[in-house]
Write a protein that binds this DNA or RNA. Structure first.
Lengths: 220, 220
DNA sequence: TGCCATTATGCACTCAATGCCATTTAGCGT
DNA sequence: ACGCTAAATGGCATTGAGTGCATAATGGCA
């Protein structure tokens, strides 16, 4: 379930290290400027200048302005896939997914970090950012749904697996929005995590909640 | 539940009728060109030329290129809100939402029409379109979640309502993707509708499906 | 040191989108 | 029918994202 959290190995060669430093500088400059001046008011040229590189070079690091907000592939997808892989026999799909969610570290940066928070705030207001986030979510759902179909042959067909995954991811996204964006000051990470899990469980009707008491295998 | 499906009243004044015709011509030209040449290859200037208006005028009708794909406010939100308003006492939130889904007309254009299909195909590939779709979905979820909180005071709090709504909408979106986009030739509308309802029900654990036998109030 | 591949950058270009402004046209009262 | 007003139209210029191309700078390696 641990899935190797953030290796963060510094690349070997000088060239790669330098490139990684520039990349980090670009992200830092972007986040800084986005927060200070707003997304639309911040130009790529400005970000590049703040990181002390040419404007053209920016696009050698990120394909677009909004890509800056999605610097890494989502670890949560890997966590979900791992949870499916390590499922217990008889465990229902919805409980497997919820188990994966519970297994995430409480202070997961991708869930409640500064960049993630900025991203969440920008998604409802900037179409381009929303589009990028949606694309990532869609890809994630496809992967998870495919894994579910493979893990539950006969029980789950394509549409059902897609619907279940969409419900799961949709519940998380919507709950996170309420818990992190629609509040004045975001609560501490572990509180967010607890409330998130509770909300998602109540939405999906997990074993711990309403009825279906036969296969109560998932522990707290 | 019927919610006045497509009034389509022709506007009174000559000016408004003319404007409506131009608007329809723009949509038609856009859909045509998008399908023929692809979204990115189609320029706003090209669409305007095909509809025989100036490029600048296009933006008097649509704020952006992708707005062309979202010509009307989503009726389904209204249907969901109506379903919540007309709920039966004791009916669980999830069953209310599913009831609203079942109440939709089988050939709802917004669900399976040509424009909707093109939109669904474009969403995974064009970030701008995805962004617009996501924004609409987000707004819809906020409205529905707010209505749910109001309809179920004490039972549903903000995060729970958001999670449930997100799960519902997410399940629909993901299932529609599988049923309409990830197939060679889309099946007939009523078949899509039936499969969609079935998939969403299985994902959300409706009364008709798994456990939770105490409050079995919702009929078929 | 010198060669090679990668990286950085400048320049010109396309296209979406916006602001400004002149012109046309529909709606309406007289 | 006439003329006024407001909306609609569209041309022109501008900004900013993103791309292709050519060239220079730089690290890896013999």
């Amino acid at each position: 379930m641990t899935t190797d959290p953030r290796p963060a190995e510094p690349p070997a060669s000088l060239r790669e290290r330098k490139r990684e430093r520039t990349r980090a500088a670009l992200i830092a400059a972007g986040v800084e400027l986005f927060e200070r001046d707003g997304y639309d008011q911040t130009t790529v040229a400005g970000i590049a200048a703040a990181a002390d590189i040419g404007t053209r070079t920016f696009f050698g690091y990120f394909a677009s302005k909004e890509e800056l907000l999605f610097p890494r592939a989502d670890d949560r997808v890997a966590a979900a896939l791992a949870a499916i892989r390590e499922r217990r026999p008889g465990e229902r799909p919805v409980d497997v997914l919820l188990g994966g969610l519970r297994g995430l570290p409480p202070d997961d940066d991708e869930l409640v970090g500064r960049l993630a928070l900025l991203r969440l705030r920008l998604i409802p207001t900037v179409p381009a950012v929303a589009g990028r986030a949606y694309a990532a979510q869609f890809a994630a759902q496809r992967d998870i749904a495919a894994a579910l179909v493979e893990a539950y042959p006969g029980e789950l067909d394509g549409p059902s697996a897609a619907a279940l995954t969409g419900a799961f991811v949709g519940a998380i996204a919507a709950a996170l929005d309420v818990l992190l964006v629609a509040v004045d000051v975001p609560p501490p990470p572990d509180a967010v995590r607890g409330a998130l899990i509770e909300a998602v469980e109540s939405a999906l009707g997990a074993s711990d909640r309403q009825g279906a008491g036969e296969r109560r295998t998932a522990g707290g």
